[in-house]
Design a protein around this nucleic acid. Structure first.
Lengths: 207, 207
DNA sequence: GGCCTCCGGTAATAGGCGTTACCATTGACG
DNA sequence: CGTCAATGGTAACGCCTATTACCGGAGGCC
């Protein structure tokens, strides 16, 4: 059967993706050479060109597959049902973990510079990630608004404020390589503080 | 006198910086060729190598000089003296204008990808820009805390929350090229909304 | 005006890049 | 066991890049 050949091929495919991701995230797209990837993955360039067609194809595959892997739990997971504070806290923690993961930091770094080269890729990355997160959170807030727990004009804007508050300067510093990702403890504190301010800020008593 | 020669030289220097900035911000560091810069600026490569030594020197000069130009008003300007709402609003508007300016967006894009190549440059960029902004805002908040207007544990963290809230997903979308910088009207609304939530959130009455 | 220094344009150098042509090898299949 | 298609390694190609060697000319200085 051809199955053996196929699984070996998939293993090699994964190894290539893994190695390529490392180099791309370290060096950026333009500064990464196919040779450098092969040096890390073993084998020969022919592997890459057989599997992904060219450099752009390889990079697209990386972004698509790692974004899928990292972002889908954020959407699927059901974090409603508790009170708003618990929901926001869980939400904040999940999105913080996702955004600070080395893979997403790497993708973010390249997405930012190569937005011109890969506009579609970047667009779908945003919509599956931060965009969808904000929309999802806006729905939660909308429900709370209907229950009379909070006061709000524009729930989507509010959602943006919340995720912005959790991102903070932390994300910026990590992305710029000025500090390592936060520990669990730091993440917990940052989210708790943001939740507190946010809840107070949008409480029904508001002006 | 050698003055004529010197001013002509400075004019050329500025033209080079200007053209180089455009290309760097459009294409990224690695993908930008010296030839492309010269094509836009006129003259010959020798100009660049005489003036800046090499590609890295040119890029460093761009970042240093435009960061100076854009960020210093944010620090020097005295926006205290009014009540906290007015101060926060002015602060939010100024920082939003700065962060959304094409130049700073361009620098940000490259800083993110080339953090490995220019660690010192990136560090000083952060410290002169977002870092100093947060520290400055923290002082303002600290004063308000001492006056009993707000309740707070960690004013620096609070300051981070505020700037994060104004950055929102807006900054992300602009940086990814998914939308143009906000109009004055949009900026005004976003800042007003953030100020409102923030003020409510940290008000003395807080729990 | 003559000298001399500095500046800027041209073209060369040396290396690196993505991509592909070519060939040896391998492993499935009858 | 022989055939054949797919696979993967090597080396080459053509292009592009940062950097510099060289040289002609312009402008300050005496």
């Amino acid at each position: 059967m051809a199955a053996a050949r196929t699984t070996r091929r998939n293993g090699r495919r994964d190894a290539l993706l893994q190695a390529a991701a490392e180099v791309f995230f370290e060096q950026g797209y333009a500064a990464t050479s196919i040779d450098a990837i092969i040096e890390r993955a073993g084998g020969s360039k022919r592997n890459i060109y057989n599997e992904f067609g060219n450099k752009e194809g390889l990079f697209s595959a990386i972004v698509r597959e790692s974004a899928d892997k990292l972002l889908s739990p954020l959407v699927i997971e059901e974090i409603e049902g508790h009170d708003l504070r618990a929901t926001l806290t869980a939400f904040g923690r999940h999105s913080m973990d996702a955004y600070m993961s080395p893979t997403l930091i790497g993708i973010y770094r390249i997405a930012v510079t190569e937005a011109n080269r890969f506009p579609d890729l970047v667009k779908s990355f945003y919509e599956q990630g931060p965009g969808r997160t904000a929309v999802r959170l806006a729905e939660v807030l909308e429900a709370a608004r209907e229950r009379g727990e909070i006061q709000a004009d524009d729930c989507l804007r509010l959602a943006g404020h919340f995720v912005g508050m959790t991102r903070d300067n932390l994300h910026l510093q990590v992305v710029l390589g000025l500090r390592p990702p936060p520990s669990d403890e730091e993440a917990r504190e940052a989210v708790a503080s943001a939740v507190e301010i946010f809840l107070n800020g949008v409480r029904r008593s508001r002006k």
